[in-house]
Design a protein around this nucleic acid. Structure first.
Lengths: 209, 209
DNA sequence: ACACAATGTGCACAAGTGTACACATATCAG
DNA sequence: CTGATATGTGTACACTTGTGCACATTGTGT
């Protein structure tokens, strides 16, 4: 009946995760964050941390899960907006860039985690990327754009696409979102990368065997 | 005239840089290393650090320079060994993998630095990669393998190649060098990535306009 | 309404950290 | 050889860190 409860369940938990993300967004590296630092940023007493997480690795893993949600949202939007095949890559790259900017901290966290020091987090992020690549392969097959490729080759192509885009991420996160010129450069280059890859995929079978 | 001096110039400096590298090799992330930790590993008193470096970023930058040397050595070996064009990619990937394993710590440091928290180190590594890509472009042009590509397109292709290989690095560094099966998988996949890219490059002009 | 579990707080402490300062020793130029 | 300079060492201090413990507050199922 209490109209407004002073303490919602999981409130501090969210505050802590947001705090960690905020610090990452400010340029700190996740691996170098400490428990006290995070709780301070969250405006919470240090010991509260242990009510929700065992250690920093733990909070990292939970951030990976949330990262998964962000990626799914992005995929959903891409599927909804990319209708005609000819603009496929420009559109996709555009959607990717706008999501990366809207969730800057999340993507920073992702880029860091790929070479982070926690094997578990690393594996988590890698797994998200694999999932993303396989969904991409499904979509492409459904659109009948790549009938000439074997399943294995299609998977490889999508893997390379996802990697290339992920690498562009580090370019993108290195420039401020306001620097429109630089962002535009990155957009163009990433798009061309993808086009190059798909030209390769289109002519793949001719070469092999 | 002293046959053996007890203290060689720059000896501690090297010990410190090796110590930092060793710690990175052991799985620690460079950004999370502290001055005391490094000096301890080097078997040196903490204050000695300041005789050679201003702070951790400084030592990181000097490591980037040494990384440059490692990369040059690798390029030289590649140029010497890759003679016939048909085996070009297998050979190159092989050389890359063996160098990456021989200098594991250096390449770990490189992979970490790409998303590290020091803008300067990040920029340094990025610059090494650009240099590498442009040298690759020179070599390819010299071998007359890519006459149909404009300078810009060739540069882009090489950029994508370098990025893909760099990303494979994170795969490679994630498995132990003794796990031959996994290493072989990575070798195959990376080679196929490069082949795909070059098939794309070979058919690039047909597509564009 | 009540007891219990979940969550938040304050305090404490040992350990580790960056770095300043004064001093010792080695190397080198003249 | 002699001083100057570069390099290494020991001590010290103010802070920060992770985390254990006892206690306060809140939310929930019955």
């Amino acid at each position: 009946m209490s109209e407004r409860t002073k303490r919602k369940p999981g409130e501090t938990r969210d505050k802590l995760m947001n705090a960690a993300l905020t610090l990452v967004g400010k340029g700190r590296h996740f691996t170098s964050l400490g428990i006290r630092e995070v709780t301070r940023q969250a405006g919470v007493v240090p010991t509260s941390f242990y009510r929700h997480f065992r250690n920093m690795d733990d909070i990292g893993l939970q951030l990976v899960d949330e990262l998964g949600l962000v990626l799914r949202r992005m995929m959903r939007e891409a599927r909804a907006n990319v209708l005609q095949a000819d603009k496929l890559m420009e559109e996709s790259v555009g959607i990717f860039i706008s999501h990366a900017q809207a969730n800057r901290s999340f993507f920073l966290f992702m880029a860091q985690g790929l070479a982070g020091e926690s094997r578990a987090i690393q594996e988590g992020i890698r797994s998200e990327m694999r999932y993303f690549a396989s969904e991409l392969a499904n979509d492409l097959r459904r659109l009948k754009l790549v009938d000439h490729l074997s399943d294995g080759d299609l998977e490889m192509t999508c893997d390379l696409v996802v990697r290339s885009v992920a690498f562009s991420l580090t370019d993108l996160l290195g420039v401020s979102a306001e620097d429109e010129y630089q962002v535009e450069q990155i957009r163009k280059r990433t798009t061309r990368f993808l086009q190059l890859i798909f030209v390769g995929a289109a002519n793949w079978n001719n070469k092999r065997s």
